[in-house]
Design a protein around this nucleic acid. Sequence first.
DNA 1: TTCGCCCTTCACAATCTCTCCACAATCGCC
DNA 2: GGCGATTGTGGAGAGATTGTGAAGGGCGAA
Lengths: 226, 226
Amino acid sequence: MPTVLVVDDETQIATIARDYLTRAGFTVVVAGDGAGGLEKWRQKRPDLVVLDLGLPRVDGFEVARAIRRESDVPIIMLTARVDETDRLRGFEVGADDYVTKPFSPRELVARVMSVLRRARHDPSRASTFVVADLAIDVARVRVERNGVAVDVTATEFQLLAALARYPGRVFTRAQLLDAVRGTEVESFERAIDAHVKNVRRKLESDPHRPRYVLTVYGIGYKFAES
Amino acid sequence: MPTVLVVDDETQIATIARDYLTRAGFTVVVAGDGAGGLEKWRQKRPDLVVLDLGLPRVDGFEVARAIRRESDVPIIMLTARVDETDRLRGFEVGADDYVTKPFSPRELVARVMSVLRRARHDPSRASTFVVADLAIDVARVRVERNGVAVDVTATEFQLLAALARYPGRVFTRAQLLDAVRGTEVESFERAIDAHVKNVRRKLESDPHRPRYVLTVYGIGYKFAES
DNA sequence: TTCGCCCTTCACAATCTCTCCACAATCGCC
DNA sequence: GGCGATTGTGGAGAGATTGTGAAGGGCGAA
């Protein structure tokens, strides 16, 4: 079940969108302004973003551009205007689809599903997300630090990607084993420690003072926040 | 059956075009303005675009330029004027053919077929793509290395084409089986290894140090980047 | 039918990783 | 500061993954 982030300052519209999307089986996160949207985006890493153009202070274009700097996540724009230039600007920024207000909730749900389907089947879509000074490209199974490729194994990559996808969130070793090996295989939890060791050795300038993968004593590991 | 996108704000003309093209065996998508045209273009990735020059707000030239930034798809311009400058501007933008209104529907169909035929046989067109020193012709199922044809089987070709279309992207054996066999047939994933072996034997100067099809240990294969 | 090509599968060797161990270092709590 | 619990770490063997030659069988052409 994919997660959708809805960014709209009109509570009524946001609520309707949330209700319908939730009923359609999505996990929905709502933000009321641009800054909050960006924050939620970083926290939750949703699979799709519904973005109102007419946000107060930081407008939708700004938010879209900021998101595009870090990810190629599908974006659907909401606009009250029927202005053509808005639509074109939106596509320039990299929006995937448009819905003009007022819209029927069903239409929104339909667009969301359609865009998600398209995105899933489009291998030309970029698949990189950026955290700290790392660029993590899931499709290429590649990590770059400040533009320099770092050579990691498949397991190390999956571990790093799982952590870096949600900076600040703490994962237990069991969760990380799941992410790395799939839920079926069970093995020694401290195997994760060994992988963390290797990731640090390859990634950190000073492995004894890690900047990316941090230890949470008594629980597990997390990726450093912003 | 190729897909044709018709962009025209005059519903009557668009409808006639759709009817005739559909009857000629094409799948037809219609848009009523420039922004909608771009949107549909991104959604459907048609094989050809019929574009009215005199669109309201965002004119045909703009749309053509936007499309050309992303693709080499054949474009046929519709124009009410017989003005030479328009035709010249159109060709500058990269239009493939011109039809002046009023036109007979049969003429439009004829032009569409002609342009498609030309495009199919034009090796500079998207049917062939070049990666590293390989030229891969999807329409003819042919591979050339430095201009010299390399004899590969259909399966080997599909495998190579699937990988080479997105250099650097890592594919699992399951994905490659899909690309080669279609999603239904399931078989031993290591059959892919055998095909990789054969592709390397035929393509690589030194099969033990492959330059094109590279192994990604623990995941699958990728085509070498840049 | 026979022939030839191609795809699949098998088996074994070569290679690369992951896991696990043992001990050292560190942390948190009293 | 002391002590038990938790984590860091180097290294080695087990285990998984891939390379590869060869055999079997399906399918279309002659």
